[in-house]
Simulated assay, not measured.
Amino acid sequence: MSTLLGFISQPPPSVFITAMSLISLTFLANSGFSEIRGKHYQYSKFWNVNSQKSAAKQIKVSSRTGMLLLYTPAFLAGLASFGIFHDEGFRFLLLNSAVTIHFFKRVLEVLFVHKYSGAMSVDDAIPISVSYFLSAASMIYAQHLSRGFPEPSIDLKYPGIVLFLMGISGNLNHHYLLSKLREEGDKEYKIPKGGLFDWVICPHYLFEILGFIGVSFISQTLYAFCYTMGTTVYLMGRSYATKRWYLSKFEDFPKDVKALIPYVF
Results as ranks from 00 to 15, higher is better:
Tyr41Phe: 15
Tyr240Ala: 10
Phe133Gly: 08
Ile59Val: 13
Tyr41Ser: 15
Cys226His: 04
Gly211His: 09
Met67Asp: 12
Ile213Lys: 05
Lys180Ile: 09
Gly118Ile: 10
Gln58Ala: 13
His175Met: 04
His86Trp: 12
Leu69Glu: 08
Ser179Thr: 00
Ser62Glu: 09
Phe103Cys: 07
Phe75Thr: 00
Leu206Tyr: 10
Asp256Ala: 12
Ile154Met: 08
Leu178His: 00
Ile84Ser: 13
Pro262Tyr: 00
Pro192Asn: 02
Ala137Ile: 01
Leu69Thr: 06
Ser63Lys: 11
Ser248Cys: 10
Pro73Cys: 08
Leu108Pro: 02
Cys226Thr: 10
Tyr189Asp: 13
Ile191Thr: 06
Ile154Gln: 06
Val110Glu: 03
Ser14Ile: 00
Leu22Thr: 11
Leu93Lys: 14
Leu178Asp: 04
Gly185Cys: 12
Glu151Trp: 00
Ser2Leu: 15
Ser81Gln: 07
Ser9Gln: 11
Gln52Glu: 15
Val257Met: 07
Gly78His: 05
Ile201Val: 14
Ser121Ala: 15
Ser129Leu: 06
Leu222Glu: 00
Leu177Tyr: 03
Leu22Trp: 08
Phe90Thr: 08
Ile218Gln: 12
Ala55Met: 14
Ser34Ile: 11
Leu25Asp: 04
Tyr234His: 13
Tyr141Leu: 06
Leu134Thr: 12
Tyr189Arg: 05
Phe46Leu: 09
Phe85Thr: 12
Val61Tyr: 05
Pro203Ala: 01
His174Arg: 07
Gly237Ala: 02
Gln58Glu: 15
Ser34Trp: 10
Gly148Phe: 02
